[in-house]
Nucleic acid binder design. Structure first.
Lengths: 343, 343
DNA sequence: TGTCCACCCGATAACGATTGCGTAAAAAAA
DNA sequence: TTTTTTTACGCAATCGTTATCGGGTGGACA
């Protein structure tokens, strides 16, 4: 069972012309007479002719498709980014091939091999939390594959990057907690190696210092799997509360972790924000409906996807290599709700 | 800037063989001697040769990619379905091209044209809420494009379909509300024309009849845009509560609507479930964290995606057309929580 | 010694589209 | 009228791969 479309050859045969003439007529070449052009166009229109993109790809050595690798599409932040990516890509006639790493390095390597073998023209990627070795990306980049990083970027590879101002986002959230009277603010972060965690940690620490709140390293914890693994999150939280001097607020470093921590606190019957306040990064549309309504740091995910795609297409469509790469930093927004109410 | 890969011709030149021999050696043809095969394989391995999928597509007249059309990927239900689709597709070497209709008929038509022009081998689609004319789908189907419908199916087109048992799901939810003492149960549903809404409505009505609760048509309302348009939802809810005999429970017909109704009730300071109970279809992972924790009808989204993909690949890879189409009905699960607690 | 048949391998065409080059006929210039 | 130019189109190569066909070499057998 196959789906057969009309080809340029069919038109040529039907009209008693050569394929070259038909091709040129459709591309409005000056070498073709007006009558022939009209004839061909009318026939093509009538039979709903569409050039075969695969044949074009083969000839032009470009597939007009871009690969996207994220950890999880069932995560508001990333699905909003993908919406941004698609909004640009479709307008520009590009195809988007999405794959998920599920935060696994192994899966990321497989995805990349797959995408490379599908001859994508460029790659948009937010690396998995497990990824500490970047050879798979370097090798593709060295071979000339245009890459743009977003959110979780790789500093060692020189290309465009689009990131959130993690440091300022974390700073604002922490300051907000301090100003609301919280003193022992824990920071549960994603994988320590990650670029993101480092930025968020620095903002957190700076906020404490600026407000003369002592930094307690025991209040800083990491989840290698970024909350995907609830058991891991539970272990870290247990450890946090096993200490003598317990935290009075938690600042969570990712969407999944924010929800996981909320689940943890509720399961332990802790009152939020009376016993413990909670602020976290989250792009959930429904943070206001939670119990309690959650104070979140919201990221401009859609814009991030748009910007990254624009940059990628610029590289793909550049005539000559341009090594003048940019790093775009987008601001985040603190949305204050019940979970961080004044003590 | 282009990304050049090694071809069979390169191998042939390097080894002093013809392209035919290299091709056959790599495909393990019996016509090639063991020594030559080893030679070719070693060279291919060393230089990381990957057959060019575009050239293969052109030759085989198949792109090994399938199109997926959903309304919104930022919806847990659909992103879980997509995970199911990908889990099968990747294993079988198929590429998944996702596009979103955003519940717009116009956008759906554009998406479909786009996908068809990208020469997909098959299509998985859950039609938009706005879609009442199916000519665009029929025409593709008539041309021989394999299609499998999931969730929101089109009865008039004869092909495989994978659906939820909407009727039983709605029945169970309604019975649950009745058994918990609720008598005036409103049903806010998605677009009236839709297959889904009809199934859910019938289950709702049957539950009422079976328990001798009178059916009040004034308690049944529809949102054409399925909750995507909050203002519309608000109008319907306002109308519902403007009646003399107000409802004491609401049964919501989709994920987005469930969240929208919760937002509406909370903004009107109505106490759930004391003043009004709420049960809705939802695949959100965080329904337990909401205020109140939500009783939901959860659908086996991942399995739905898997099943639909398996069926589609069966059609695509069939040697001869098989008109023996199946309609798979998957069960839903009622997860009882606070929002529907006994009166 | 001649015939036949495996065994291996190469040349070629095809998939659909574009494009450089060649060329017949018509038009313009001489 | 002859020469040159222009117009309008066809031929063939190309992209990477595979299938079809055809052919050369060597051994087995009569």
């Amino acid at each position: 069972m196959r789906f057969e479309a009309i080809t340029i050859k069919d038109i040529a045969t039907a009209l008693g012309l050569s394929t070259s003439t038909v091709s040129r007529a459709l591309r409005d070449s000056h070498e073709i007479s007006v009558e022939t052009k009209n004839l061909v166009r009318a026939y093509a229109e009538e039979h709903n002719y569409r050039p075969n993109p695969i044949a074009l790809s083969l000839k032009e050595k470009r597939s007009r498709s871009i690969g996207v690798v994220v950890c999880e599409i069932a995560n508001s932040f990333f699905s909003q980014i993908i919406n941004g990516i698609e909004s640009i890509a479709y307008d520009r006639g590009y195809n988007v091939i999405i794959s998920q790493s599920h935060e696994s390095y192994k899966r990321e390597v497989i995805d990349l091999n797959y995408l490379a073998s599908r001859s994508i023209d460029g790659l948009l990627i937010s690396v998995s939390m497990e990824t500490t070795n970047f050879d798979h990306l370097k090798s593709l980049h060295d071979k000339g594959l245009p890459i743009v990083f977003f959110d979780r970027v790789v500093d060692e590879i020189d290309t465009h990057k689009v990131i959130i101002d993690n440091s300022t986002g974390a700073y604002n959230a922490t300051v907000h907690l301090i100003e609301n009277g919280f003193k022992r603010i824990a920071n549960i972060n994603i994988s320590e190696h990650s670029f993101i965690a480092q930025g968020r940690l620095s903002g957190y620490k700076k906020a404490l210092q600026d407000h003369n709140v002592p930094i307690d390293e025991k209040l800083i914890r990491y989840c290698e799997h970024g909350g995907q693994d609830y058991a891991e999150l539970e272990r870290e939280m247990d450890a946090l509360f096993a200490q003598k001097k317990k935290p009075d607020a938690v600042f969570a470093g990712s969407d999944t972790m924010t929800m996981g921590i909320l689940r943890y606190l509720k399961s332990r019957k802790m009152k939020i924000p009376e016993e413990i306040a909670l602020v976290g990064f989250s792009n959930s549309e429904n943070a206001d409906l939670l119990q309690p309504a959650l104070t979140v740091i919201k990221q401009p995910a859609f814009e991030m996807g748009k910007k990254a795609t624009e940059l990628l297409l610029k590289v793909i469509e550049a005539k000559r290599p341009d090594n003048d790469f940019e790093k775009f930093v987008l601001p985040s927004e603190l949305v204050v709700r019940e979970s961080s109410e004044k003590k």
